[in-house]
C-alpha cells in the first residue's frame, strides 16, 4: 500500500532533520513506542504497543535510516512483527523550508510503501489505510509539540 503526505514542523530544516533522527525524541513521538535502542550505526531495535479500539498488539522490530542527505532527505525503513501480524515499510522523507508565516518551519513530505500481513491484515484490511494515516498524523503532532516544548524550555 502506498502512503504519502506532508506535514509542517515548526523548526528550521536543519533542526527538523536532526530531530527526525534523534532516537530519544522519536521514541516519545511514535504512538505506542515503548523503547528504541541503538544496535548499530543508524539502526535501532524498537518495541511498540499498538492500542486501537479493542485491538491490542505488541510488536518488535527494527528501524533503519539510509540515504542520508542532510538537511533535505533520508530514507526510513521499518520492520515489525507481533502475534497479530507483521508490517514492513519503507519511505523517503524530504525536507524543505515551508512557505509559512512562522519564522522557521519545515515541510516534511513522505512517500512510501507499507505492507501489512497476518491476522491483523486478513480481518482488518478495510482499516489499514485509515489507521496508518492516523498513526502518522499522531507521530507528527507529537513531534511538533515536543519541538515546541524544547523551544520554550530554552
Amino acid at each position: 500500500m502506498k502512503i504519502s503526505g506532508s506535514y509542517i514542523l515548526p523548526v528550521a530544516p536543519e533542526r527538523a532533520y536532526q530531530i527526525l533522527q534523534d532516537p530519544a525524541i522519536l521514541a516519545q513521538a511514535m504512538p505506542g513506542c515503548e523503547g528504541l535502542e541503538k544496535i548499530g550505526p543508524d539502526e535501532y531495535r524498537m518495541k511498540m504497543k499498538v492500542l486501537l479500539a479493542a485491538l491490542s498488539g505488541q510488536f518488535e522490530g527494527k528501524v533503519r535510516i539510509t540515504d542520508h542527505s542532510p538537511p533535505t532527505s533520508f530514507r526510513l525503513i521499518v520492520e515489525g512483527t507481533g502475534r497479530i501480524g507483521f508490517l514492513k515499510g519503507e519511505g523517503l522523507l524530504r525536507l524543505s523550508p515551508a512557505d509559512s508565516a512562522v519564522a522557521a518551519s519545515t515541510l516534511v513530505s513522505y512517500d512510501g510503501d507499507v505492507q501489512v500481513g497476518g491476522t491483523m491484515a486478513a480481518v482488518g484490511q478495510r482499516l489499514i489505510d485509515g489507521t496508518a494515516k492516523m498513526m502518522i498524523r499522531r507521530f507528527f503532532d507529537k513531534l511538533a509539540s515536543l519541538t515546541q516544548e524544547a523551544k520554550s524550555a530554552n
Binding site: 479500539a53 479493542a54 485491538l55 491490542s56 498488539g57 497479530i84 491476522t119 491483523m120 480481518v123 482488518g124
Partner: peptide, 21 residues
Amino acid sequence: AKPLAGGMSLIPMMKLRLAAP
C-alpha cells in the same frame, strides 16, 4: 476493565485474538 455494550465488534476481535481484554 473493558466495557462490553453488545459485542458485535469486540467479540469477533476477541475470537480472532486480535483483542484480549
